[in-house]
Design a protein around this nucleic acid. Structure first.
Lengths: 152, 152
DNA sequence: AAACAATCGTTGACTTTTTCAATGATCCGT
DNA sequence: ACGGATCATTGAAAAAGTCAACGATTGTTT
């Protein structure tokens, strides 16, 4: 079958023009990454999104649900589900907004922070696996470029 | 409300650790990009995915549906739907596989290539808009890094 | 050559996710 | 105090994703 490395082989179709489309590249890397991430997070009963919410709840930034929805590109109703789940499991809790009593601030519990620390460790291994083809420098470059593209 | 540029402002939550997660950055850039891309493609009755299929059908690589599914990270049944739609509109057609008569090769029609050329032009404007914060060099770097991460 | 397991595209059922409008509570500007 | 806007929440409808089964065909084993 010819030479075969342990790496993922380049698919024949990558030669097409579309192999340069940022949209497709993002979609594909995101798809494969999500698969790995969700698998890694399953050990802690989390998925990519609930992990994101948990992380932000642990950040000390005291995000409101609206902020979570905007930041994570989710519908507000989806945030309700995610927070419901995390709250039922005692990992986060809803607190009343400080200036705005309509808003609810999501904060982590001690248990939530415990789980988050563990899960994050698992995820970082996972991320390293996904970007194994990149050097340390390139890894940092990629993050920087993505951030710049998003927020200038 | 303080100074306000025409650019997207940096959300408060981007300061969190998760603002460095490759997974989240990919998800977010992909989400905002898809929105723009689908909007741009709507003029031609296409969406991101059908455009991808059409592009590959126009590539001369004669992809099978299985290859499309693998390359685009889709379930084979989703490819069936996408090809059905494009075929009904006369943009692509199914041809019998050459070595393997089970497989079906997706090739573009003249009309398909015509639409594709137009749609691609629209998309490129769109991509440029999305990555406006990046310089020409950075734009190329980003593509290169994404490709390397995917295929080494 | 006959039998067997594996693969391709397709279908249909099932689950999950997304989208959207409506609601009560609260905020803000007038 | 009034009116319009925003927040979280609910529930319903639409879209997308997942998965197992099928006929046709392939490659392999015997």
């Amino acid at each position: 079958m010819g030479p075969q490395s342990t790496e993922v082989e380049i698919p024949r179709l990558a030669a097409a023009k579309i192999g340069n489309d940022v949209g497709l590249l993002l979609a594909k890397l995101h798809a494969t990454g999500s698969l790995l991430n969700n698998k890694a997070l399953a050990d802690y009963g989390l998925r990519e999104r609930s992990f994101s919410v948990l992380t932000l709840a642990c950040s000390g930034l005291e995000p409101t649900q609206r902020e979570l929805a905007d930041f994570l590109s989710l519908d507000p109703s989806q945030v309700v589900s995610l927070v419901d789940d995390l709250e039922h499991r005692g990992l986060v809790k809803r607190a009343q907004g400080k200036q705005d009593r309509r808003a609810k601030i999501i904060v982590s519990t001690a248990e939530g922070r415990r789980i988050h620390t563990k899960a994050r460790a698992g995820l970082e291994v996972c991320e390293q696996t996904q970007l194994a083809a990149l050097s340390e420098d390139e890894n940092l470059q990629l993050r920087a470029l993505l951030k710049k593209a998003l927020w200038g």
